[in-house]
Design a protein around this nucleic acid. Structure first.
Lengths: 144, 144
DNA sequence: TCTTTAATAAGAATTAATCTTAATTAAAGT
DNA sequence: ACTTTAATTAAGATTAATTCTTATTAAAGA
């Protein structure tokens, strides 16, 4: 996606949702969109303060949360930033309820039997291969 | 796995690694092993203090970290408890280097085309289906 | 341009997680 | 049973990530 299209889409999404297109929001979005490092809020802030010295870390967190709600960005590999554990160590996968945080284990033999794409072999040594499903569990669905 | 086998294996792993089989370790392990809630350290502590009023939260954290090193337990859905973001919202997957924390995107069409197991349909509404690979990236591998 | 109201900055506050030190406890080996 | 030593407790300090509070600023519409 080229830069102008990206920005145009960004402004469109903001307007559709009644959000002001502020300088901060635009820069945060553009910086994230141009990165492939999956940066944390702090890493983004560090990059951005070079150009915008008064940008507060709070704005970065708040803005990312807003973007996440709009579906403009995604949060990866974390669930509410609190570590959770399991003693089940045989191969299995997880369904995560985005509403209540519940985790449900499941097995998927036909996936386990799959080989990862050939072009991935160069990445390094792969130790685990897991599926994560996200959604809303039936309990939360029935609450509405 | 039945309770006795589980405990026996636990004690064996401790002994193999020169760790004392303490009451606290055993209870923490058993409680986690009997749970399917993927509890946090705090949640586990809350459960355990009922029976062991002097158990400290610090011991729970320390013990879980020890267990993780031994491969007795796994930490799920978190990467060092720091949220990371991406603006790439088309369907893709992640390779995570457990050593340096680097995340690499990849696509996997034949996986994307798969249907999840029939018995999973009852879980609720599934919004996303992703693969997470864990391992050591080639950069980290070559450092040794 | 003026006004309204959402968004931001700055710093305080919170929360999870870890570390420190010293004193106590209890495994495991003799 | 005795001894050694690792592990735990207690209590507090510390660090890091995230969120909250309040006063100020600036986007968007009139």
């Amino acid at each position: 996606m080229d830069k102008n299209k990206q920005t145009a889409r960004f402004e469109e999404v903001c307007r559709e949702n009644g959000l002001k297109v502020t300088h901060q929001r635009l820069e945060i979005y553009r910086t994230l969109a141009q990165s492939d490092a999956h940066p944390s809020a702090e890493a983004l802030h560090k990059l951005l303060v070079e150009k915008m010295p008064t940008l507060s870390i709070d704005t970065v967190y708040r803005t990312l949360a807003t973007f996440e709600e709009l579906g403009l960005v995604k949060r990866v590999g974390t669930m509410a930033s609190r570590a959770r554990f399991e003693a089940k160590i045989d191969q299995h996968h997880h369904f995560f309820c985005d509403q209540c945080g519940q985790l449900i284990d499941f097995t998927w033999n036909s996936f386990d039997a799959m080989y990862i794409p050939e072009e991935m072999k160069g990445l390094g040594k792969i130790l685990e291969k897991n599926v994560v499903l996200h959604g809303i569990c039936s309990k939360c669905l029935s609450k509405k």
